[in-house]
Every structure is written in C-alpha cells, then in structure tokens.
C-alpha cells in the first residue's frame, strides 16, 4: 500500500514506462505553450494557497564544493532552525542532517556530504506506516504528521538512508514553527514552514553563505529553475538508486 498522496502509483510495476510517458507529456506541454508553461511554473505559491503537484521540491548537493566544515554548517543551521538541542544522552539526540565522511579505499580519496531525508518519490517510510502519519506531500516533501504518529518507528527501520530520529524525551521549549514532541518520529521537513511562504531551507541558506553553489534548492519540475537546469547538464547521483525510491535530494561528485 502506498501513502503517496499525489500520483497514486500503487503498483510500482511498469514504473519506468510511466516515467517515459510522463516525460513525453511534460516536453509536449513545454513546446506547445512555452510562455504559459514558464509563467505557471515559475510562480511561487502564496502562503494561503494549497500545494500542488506542479512543483517537486528538491535539493542538489554539490559535494565538490563542500568540505567537512561546510557540512557542519548545514548540520548546525538545521539544529538551530528546528531547536534540535543536546539532551545529555548522545545516543538519543535527534539528527535531521548528519555529516557522512566517505573514502574510496582504493585511491584514498575522501570527502564529506550531508545526509538527510531524501524526500523520495516512492518513500518506503510511508509504505510501512500503519497510521498514515508518514506521507509524501503532493509537492514532493516527505513529512511525519506528528498528530497521528504513534511512535512505532517502523519508518525508521524502513528508511534506507537512516534519516529519521525518535523523540525519546520531552522537548524543552520547542520552536513555534517546528513543533516536536516525545513519542513521535521526526526528520528533515525540507523546512516546509519556509518553503510554503516562498523561502528556502535553512541548511541551503547557510551553506550558500559560506560556500556558494554547494547546495541548490528549487523546483525540479520547473524547467527554468536553477536546479532543473543544473541537473539537466550534469549527471547526478541518487543515493541507493537501485532501490527505486527516486529521491528529491541529489548529489554531485560522489
């Protein structure tokens, strides 16, 4: 059972063919009415408008422009945006973004990247959720509806990216824009509270301050967006592409 609330591709069968078909219609739309399409796609949602599947939000992480310190900037920006403080029990502290240090054992080449919720098109966390709390919002952002999360943590086991954390303890003084509470699962929200009012995620903002171009946030479905242009020029990496989750977070240089 899938909890995808947009495309409703329940089977997973014939996915590649559907993609080809979708791509074909998208191109047709662009060429048939270019002016209209561009305007429609480039317009940001007003705060009072519902999200639509005309957008798919994504982040392109250019690891060639990132070092350990830049990754830590992302982590710290996330922690302070969402009030992820240390509880004194390190094993239980939430991690919405974590720094991953990787090394090619044959050449010794090493670098770092930020790992977080990959905002999958086909999120395994949502598939296993017994209450429907884990869901993929129609514009591609994968969230936990904490109001109906029962804290079973199936999603944490299902996530191939180890991107989710559990709130083991009461949370002191949560941020008003990012409520979190004991007994529920939490993860990167792609900063929905900012995106919904036309902003960009805190990590992207912070990283671009210290290392311009290291993270690009934008609408993958808008052919005029910086991210869409970039991913059409360079070959990007989808982490564990073999699983067919189709992440919205894409990497360069890994």
């Amino acid at each position: 059972m899938t909890k995808d609330r947009s495309s409703g591709d329940p089977s997973g069968i014939d996915r590649s063919r559907r993609h080809v078909l979708k791509a074909a219609t998208a191109i047709a739309a662009v060429t048939l009415a270019p002016g209209w399409q561009l305007i429609a796609a480039a317009e940001a949602k007003a705060p009072g408008e519902p999200v639509t599947d005309k957008n798919r939000w994504g982040i392109l992480v250019d690891t060639t422009k990132m070092d350990k310190a830049t990754c830590d900037v992302a982590v710290d920006a996330c922690n302070s945006e969402h009030g992820l403080t240390k509880s004194g029990h390190p094993g239980q502290d939430p991690q919405w973004i974590r720094r991953l240090d990787i090394r090619d054992p044959q050449t010794g080449a090493a670098h770092s990247l930020p790992m977080m919720c990959q905002h999958c098109q086909y999120p395994p966390c949502a598939d296993v959720c017994p209450t429907g709390a884990s869901f993929r919002r129609i514009d591609g952002i994968v969230l936990v509806d904490k109001h109906i999360c029962i804290g079973c943590r199936y999603c944490m086991l299902a996530c191939p990216y180890k991107a989710r954390s559990f709130a083991y303890r009461d949370i002191e003084d949560p941020k008003p824009h990012s409520p979190r509470g004991r007994g529920t699962v939490q993860s990167c929200t792609m900063c929905v509270h900012r995106v919904d009012v036309g902003g960009i995620p805190a990590c992207v903002e912070a990283c671009n301050d210290v290392a311009p171009g290291s993270m690009i946030f934008g609408d993958l479905k808008d052919p005029e967006s910086e991210i869409a242009k970039r991913v059409s020029e360079v070959v990007v990496k989808r982490v564990r592409a073999d699983l067919g989750t189709d992440p919205g977070v894409l990497y360069l240089g890994v």
């Binding site: 949602k45 408008e49 919002r137 969230l143 509806d145 824009h177 509270h193």
Partner: peptide, 16 residues
C-alpha cells in the same frame, strides 16, 4: 490538516 497536508500557512484558525 490544512497546514499539514496542503501547506496553507495564513489560516484564520492557526494555533500559533
């Protein structure tokens, strides 16, 4: 639910 699922942020009945 309007905020969670539809991303509507200027609702009259916002808890904040």
């Amino acid at each position: 639910d309007r905020t969670m699922y539809l991303g509507i942020r200027d609702g009259k009945y916002s808890l904040n």
